[in-house]
Amino acid sequence: MDDDRLWSFEQSLWTEGPDNYREKVDDQVVMVLPQPPYVYVGQAAIEAVASTPVWESAELTDRQVTRPQEGLIVIGYHVRAERDGHAGYEAHCTSVIRRLDHEVWRVVQHQQTPLLAANADQK
Rank of each mutant, 00 (worst) to 15 (best):
A45W: 00
A58K: 07
M31P: 03
P37A: 02
P53Q: 08
Q69Y: 10
S95R: 03
Q109A: 06
R106P: 03
D84W: 03
E59L: 11
Q111T: 13
W7S: 12
G88E: 07
A118Q: 14
V25F: 04
E16K: 10
Q35T: 09
R98A: 14
V108A: 02
G17E: 10
P37F: 01
W105V: 06
D101R: 12
Q69M: 15
S95K: 04
E82L: 11
E47Q: 07
D3R: 14
E16W: 03
M1G: 12
L13G: 13
N20P: 01
Q43T: 10
P68M: 09
I97M: 03
V96S: 09
A45H: 00
H102G: 03
H92K: 12
V54T: 15
T15L: 09
V30T: 08
E23C: 12
P37G: 03
D2V: 05
E103Q: 14
E90N: 09
H110R: 08
W55F: 11
V29T: 01
H102S: 10
S8T: 15
G76C: 08
T15S: 09
D26V: 02
M1R: 04
E23L: 12
T113K: 04
N119I: 11
E47C: 01
V29F: 01
P53F: 05
E82R: 14
V41T: 02
D3W: 02
A45C: 06
H78E: 12
G71F: 01
M31E: 02
V107C: 07
P36A: 12
V74P: 00
G85L: 10
R99H: 04
P36M: 14
E90P: 03
D84L: 08
A48Y: 04
Q11A: 13
Q112D: 15
D4P: 01
Y77K: 01
L115E: 05
D84F: 05
G88V: 07
R22E: 10
S51M: 08
V107R: 03
D19T: 14
E10D: 12
P114E: 08
G17N: 08
A50I: 03
R99S: 14
V79P: 04
A87N: 05
D26L: 03
G17R: 06
D2G: 11
L72W: 02
D84H: 05
P34T: 11
K24F: 05
V25M: 14
H110E: 06
T52S: 09
V39G: 00
S57V: 13
I97V: 14
W105M: 13
V74F: 03
L13M: 11
A81M: 10
R106H: 13
W55T: 12
P114V: 08
L100D: 13
E23T: 15
T66C: 05
R5V: 02
V41K: 07
R99I: 07
Y38M: 09
D2R: 07
G17Y: 08
R98G: 02
E47F: 01
Y89S: 06
D27R: 10
D121T: 13
Y21N: 10
L13S: 02
Q109E: 01
R63K: 15
D3P: 03
E59T: 13
E59M: 08
A50K: 05
Q69V: 14
L116D: 11
D19S: 13
L116N: 06
D62E: 13
A45G: 00
L60T: 06
V107K: 06
Y40E: 04
Q28I: 00
V32P: 00
L13W: 02
